Simulated assay, not measured.
Amino acid sequence: MFLLILYVLHTILVSGVLFNVILVYFTIFKTPKSIGTFSILLTVRGGADAFACFFDIFSQSRIVPSGLTLGIVSSGICKYLGDWSCFVGYSLQLHYHCYSFHLLILCFAFRYYVLIERYPKSNQLIFLMCILYFPSFFQAVFVLIDSNKPEDVRLLLRIHHPEYEMKDVIVNGHDDLRDFPCLFAYLLMLIPIFPGYMLIHVFRRKIRSKLRNAILRPEVREKHRQLTLALTVQSFIPIAFIFSAFAFLISQSKLIESPILESLILLSAVLVPVLNPILMILMVKPYRETVMRAIGIDPKEWQCVMSKDCSVAPGDSNSSMFSFDNTSVASVTSVSSKFTLTGERSPFD
C-alpha cells in the first residue's frame, strides 16, 4: 500500500516534465527581445528541472539512512533495466537538483546586476553557467564512483531495518558514508543549500531597496512592483530544498526513523522543478498570454475584466513582468542617495 501511494505521488509529479518542456519552448520561441539574455538562463534551468523530474519518475528512489550506511531503495521503471540503471537515475536526479539550485541563485544575481550595471553579454552569462555546473558535475561523479554492491547494501539495510519490506524494489547505495567520494558528494549537496538560500534573500532585499529608491515613471514603477512580488514568491520555493536537507539530517541522526520521512527527502525536493515553470509562465506576460490563447481566453478581454479598464496602451502587448529593457531596468545611477534611470539602450535591442 505504501509503495502504491509513493507511485501515485511520483506519477503526479511527472507533470513537472511537461511544464518545463513548455517553458523551454516559450523561452526559445516566445521570449520578447527585451529579455533575450535572461531567457538563456531560463532555458537552461528549465532543461535541468525537466531532467530532474524525469529521473525522479525513472528511479522513484527513497533514501534510507541506516547508521553509516546510506541505502537507496528504487521502485520506478528502472527496476526493469537493472540495479545500475536505478542508481544512475538517482545520481542524475541529485545532479540536476543541485545545478538547478545554483542557477536559481544566478537568476537573483542577474536581476540585481541589471539594476546597477548594463546587461551582461550572453557569452558572459553562458560562462557563469558553465562555472556553476562544475560542483554538480563533481557531485554526480563522486556519487557514481562510490556505488557498492547492491547485495551488501541490502544486507546492511535488513540489519538496521528488519521491519522494512524490500521484496519488489531495487536496493543500491553506500555501505560507509565516511568514504571520501561519498562524503564529499553529499556535503557538496548539503552545504550550499543554507548559505545559498540566505544569498537569495540578500539579493531580493537589495533589489527591493534599489526599486524603492529609484526615480521611475508610474508605469515603470508598476512593472517593478510586479517584479518585486514575483521575486518574493519565487524566493520561497527553495524552502522545499531546506525541508529536504532537514529530513535527510533528521533521518541520518536517527531522531526519527520513518519510511514517510525518508520518502519526503526526494519528494519535497522535486516540488521545486514542478512549481518553478508554473511560476515563470504566470509571471512573464508573453508566456502567460500564449497559454491563455491556447485555452481559448482572449488576454485583452481578461485584462479588461480584471482591471475594469479596457483602455490598452499602444505597444503594451509585448510587456512583461520581467521587462529588462531600457525603459524599465536600464542601468541605475546614484544621485544624492537617490537613483535615476538612465536612457541607455539595451545591447540586445
Rank of each mutant, 00 (worst) to 15 (best):
V202A: 09
F58Q: 00
S263P: 05
S244E: 01
L18Y: 15
T333Y: 10
I72Q: 08
E219N: 11
S319G: 09
V153R: 03
I191E: 07
L23F: 12
P218Q: 09
C53T: 06
S100G: 15
C53R: 01
H95V: 03
T27C: 14
E222K: 15
D168G: 04
T11S: 14
D316T: 13
I215G: 02
I5A: 11
F101P: 02
I281K: 00
S39R: 12
Q303E: 15
I215P: 01
V335L: 14
K223W: 00
E219V: 13
R154C: 01
H97I: 11
E117W: 02
P32D: 05
C182T: 13
S15I: 15
K30S: 06
M1L: 08
R178A: 12
L255A: 08
I215K: 14
P32K: 02
T27G: 11
I145N: 01
L187G: 10
Y96L: 13
L68Q: 08
G16K: 03
S328E: 04
F194Y: 13
G46I: 02
V335E: 14
F243D: 01
A330N: 10
M129L: 13
Y197N: 12
F194M: 10
N276P: 00
I265R: 07
K149Q: 06
G36I: 06
Q93C: 13
K79M: 09
I237E: 01
L94T: 05
M189K: 08
K206Y: 07
